[in-house]
Nucleic acid binder design. Sequence first.
DNA 1: GTTCGTACGTTCGAAATCGAACAAATACTT
DNA 2: AAGTATTTGTTCGATTTCGAACGTACGAAC
Lengths: 248, 248
Amino acid sequence: MSQSTIQQSSVRNGLLAALALADWAHLEPHLEAVELPFDQTVHAAGGPVDAVFFIETGMVSVLVTLEDGAQVESGIAGPEGLLGLALVFGDSHSLTDARVQLEGTALRIGAAAFQAAMDRSPALRALLLRYALAFLGQVTQGGACNARHPIENRLARWLLTAHDRAGADEFPMTHEFMAMMLGVNRPGVSIAAGLLSRAGLIRYVRGRMTITDRPGLEAATCECYHTVRHEYARLLGPRSAAPAASAG
Amino acid sequence: MSQSTIQQSSVRNGLLAALALADWAHLEPHLEAVELPFDQTVHAAGGPVDAVFFIETGMVSVLVTLEDGAQVESGIAGPEGLLGLALVFGDSHSLTDARVQLEGTALRIGAAAFQAAMDRSPALRALLLRYALAFLGQVTQGGACNARHPIENRLARWLLTAHDRAGADEFPMTHEFMAMMLGVNRPGVSIAAGLLSRAGLIRYVRGRMTITDRPGLEAATCECYHTVRHEYARLLGPRSAAPAASAG
DNA sequence: GTTCGTACGTTCGAAATCGAACAAATACTT
DNA sequence: AAGTATTTGTTCGATTTCGAACGTACGAAC
């Protein structure tokens, strides 16, 4: 456990910031600041989920691994949310990998302490269930998007989602990687990214992506981005829908 | 409210059947038997969710409606589950339509009574959260499946999922309709269904689908069917993973 | 028995995407 | 400065899927 007290006012995680003081008090003694280094697997599919991570900075992808080895992104979590959703549902296993895509930091709480806090604090439970529902909305809309929308729209959507969580207009990101997330082949992303770049919406050089025209990107995405964003805002408040964009 | 008492032993819904008597007692006075006629919209996207429906027979699709009017299935519920998942999360709105695909019956409970029962019964809440997690698993795996797997495998998967909930080897189902569920065009389904039919796995005549070789279909599907089924079984017990197949 | 609506089979050209490959450019290493 | 690994741009043919169309079969209604 952490030796020193964490001040709620200094917490950058949207869920924790939304708690009343009494509910925060249930969690705080058990929270431990941890690093989320790039590419770390926070929890693995099939394995146990032994802690919840409230993300403070960075971005983590939730991934389904298919039989052929392909990993497809089903959702993204950032400073608006948490990892270890299975524990919110009272389970201790996950169908998905969680892998750090943009390095950052988190506050970690072990499964037992987390369950105890959930049991004692109805407000905490209610808040985290709303987050779970928002995440379900993200996965639901994303699934339909995968089935029907062309690569260019989906790429714009993914970039906006990443931008919301990156905390900056520029962040490291390769075509190869985005192709895997979207479940498409790499040249497909290169072509789509080329279109967005020629339209002046983004720039990229060797694994560094820069969002140069966010309103333009929002016009280039399918409605799925806006649908998910509105759902996050409705359930968790505007701050949690787009932590980076509204702060910066 | 219903005038007469419903015996738990006669209930065909997997969730209700799994409840201890004390938890059942919280719900029973408020349950009302209702019909689920074909094509009925149980609740609509954006609209309020004013009741939970524990399905007894039949099958209901949970659908995302896209801007272009296309409706893509994100999940299916049958006698193993319920509709109105938003209420389990403490919310009262839904991102999705729920539409009856195979007619049946359900036990309905209004939102207020349902919330009260959830508040009073931790066991009920725990059970329904496990169902919510299983449903999230279905949506998650389905989204990845949409992104990567060819139509034929996805059709086999969908037929197996329907078979599990239909309670019979034969059920009404058109190509047109399956195409919409899978988010693909109709000839794509006709071709895929033709392959499955020539392989002797299914038969169909004018909107009547018959599963003739279930093990064969299970070999023709992608792993996504098995993954989801195992997750349902793990979280809810074997009965809920395949209510029809294990009963018949 | 005829008519009509729906479901299905099939075709066709167009478009999107795939999968593999290779060249060019950039960063890192030595 | 040279060598190496990685990232990106690009090509190309193959495959899948799309979207529209048309003909046929089945079943219900008159």
